[in-house]
Design a protein around this nucleic acid. Structure first.
Lengths: 342, 342
DNA sequence: CTGAAAGCGCTAACAT
DNA sequence: ATGTTAGCGCTTTCAG
């Protein structure tokens, strides 16, 4: 009792009480309280005692201490979600999907951003493991072959990855290569032959997979194969704008752009406009992921549900490990104005 | 040891060991292990013993059990964040700000979505409290005066709210009324007299505050005050499109729109286009919050940094309670094409 | 039908 | 310089 009680301490509502206090108030043992309040063996308790315990619990506002429970049971009912950046639409839709199923199961969700920095991925995983999460969903990693994660003491913690990863864990993903290949094919069908490829960074697995699709598409449809048409870099808008600007300045000619995410595609749109190039007449642009912004910008994209993938990952994590193996999620082409669609 | 070892169990990396195992391996007491591995009184330990403990810890891959630590210390180093919807730009930017400071402090962040459903707010708070978070940041609530939260046993858990709330807790916010009033004033300066107001739901505190600003603006600038110009409803795009469509169909005349969030403004744009109305010539539109999508859509908006507010809230929560009281965050008008700006 | 005691993993007096 | 003990809040044998 300090002299100065701040507003913080005067919050309404009772202080959460422990089972011991309930026991004292009810005049029974701690064991009995545990039994009536938490199911197990509650039927072997006399109605009177039970009522007394329930009344006492209500009176003091009993709330089981999750920490004690978790320590005792070896289960925290909490899972962790690792994403590069929650303010990226790709990831917050995943997060929403994950949280929806996790919440329904009565679990908590511990969230961390890594900005795709390997060291921060390690820190994030260890933080989650130290808090003894029951499982972790790892979305959007796959950097440098995930080598930095080899030393992590996963123990028996369940892991599900979303997207390309090199971890030995079930993965929820789409066929990245096929998706990009189709996009290239679509551009080819439009008569475009020089497709600028806005890839992610070279050491990202997602870049490797999608790039394989690009190359296969270029080869398969007889388009111009030229390394000058391949640009590695970050997944941000400004990043892509700069890259496209540079490509134009460097005299790289192209009549199509396939970006490995929509932010890059949107960034490309800006550079194109700035250069006086008209979309789709001069350059057709297609992105990937089909985030809500793509529709707003009338940008064609490769569409698949990040939300559903988040749900699927969480369901996989919370389900029987031996249950249905993860399937590849379907993707479609969402054709819009940036490639001359309706 | 079951016959069938699934891939899940063969994850690389050691199983996290307990301090007791380290003690046994090093041939010292548990206390000694605790002392060398966790600082306190480590200097009063002989170099040899220390080395032996450190070596043993490394060998078995010791990781302190966060649950035990939290139970013991009464501090979880975890805070909770409650938002209506993490896939709403307003909130995921807040979340990013919060997580950035929380992560730097070595804390974890427990995230929950409520969709602004009072019952789910209660469930969310209780889940966080049961997990004994050290504090909770409550963003975007303020529904029906937060009455449903009165019965919650907050105990000594610290709380910081973001935006209008009726909880007795420090609040990080902007001057909602002034912001909307300015927007109305700006529209008035453009010669608009009949401003359609796309408010949130009537029982949201944020609607109440912003509506007060709208009314003050209408009165102050001598514009047309007509309840038919005020439309309550959800904060979603489709929602707003329908509302504007209805207003037009009902013969409500207006030459300006002020929406209480950008999703509504963007939804309005669609309805306007659909009705053959040109923006900004026929109708000037301004939103609120200035989420990234606003810039993409060339939508004027009231701008303030949700990211910074998230940071501020987290800093407030983690700082000395008696420290700097929360200040009102600044807002500005971001003028773009939807109101005829550059 | 109910209670006492042990223990989950850890730290902090309190010894020695 | 190091070990013993108690206990954080809870569940669960094991005894009555």
């Amino acid at each position: 009792m300090t002299i100065d009680d701040s507003a913080q301490d005067q919050r309404p509502g009772p202080q959460a009480a422990s089972a011991k206090q309930v026991a004292e108030l009810a005049g029974v043992s701690l064991t009995t309280v545990s039994r009536v309040l938490r199911g197990r063996g509650a039927d072997a308790i006399s109605p009177v005692t039970r009522q007394r315990v329930i009344a006492a619990a209500a009176e003091v506002g009993y709330r089981p201490n999750g920490l004690a429970l978790a320590l005792r049971r070896g289960v925290t009912e909490t899972i962790g979600l690792i994403v590069p950046d929650i303010s990226d639409a790709y990831f917050h839709q995943i997060a929403r999907g994950v949280e929806d199923v996790v919440q329904r199961a009565g679990y908590g969700l511990l969230l961390t951003n890594t900005d795709r920095v390997p060291e921060r991925e390690v820190v994030a995983v260890n933080m989650l493991l130290d808090k003894r999460v029951d499982g972790v969903i790892f979305a959007g990693g796959g950097i440098s072959g995930d080598a930095h994660l080899d030393a992590v003491a996963w123990g028996r913690t369940r892991v599900v990855v979303i997207g390309p990863h090199d971890l030995d864990a079930p993965a929820v993903r789409v066929d990245d290569a096929a998706a990009i290949q189709e996009a290239v094919g679509y551009l080819a069908g439009l008569g475009r032959a020089r497709i600028l490829c806005l890839a992610g960074r070279e050491d990202w697995l997602v870049s490797r997979d999608r790039l394989a699709g690009y190359r296969k598409g270029v080869r398969g449809f007889g388009l111009v194969a030229d390394d000058a048409l391949i640009s590695f870099g970050g997944f941000g808008r400004a990043d892509a704008t700069a890259r496209v600007r540079n490509a134009i300045a460097a005299g790289v000619a192209f009549d199509g752009v396939v970006a490995f995410n929509d932010y890059c595609a949107i960034g490309a749109l800006a550079a194109l406009r700035e250069a006086g190039l008209e979309v789709p007449r001069d350059v057709a642009v297609i992105g990937c992921d089909d985030i809500p912004e793509a529709e707003l910008m009338d940008l064609s994209s490769i569409s698949f549900s990040q939300y559903e993938m988040g749900r699927a990952a969480a369901e996989l994590l919370l389900s029987d490990p031996a249950a249905a193996p993860p399937a590849t999620h379907p993707h479609t082409l969402a054709i819009r104005g940036s490639t001359g669609g309706t």
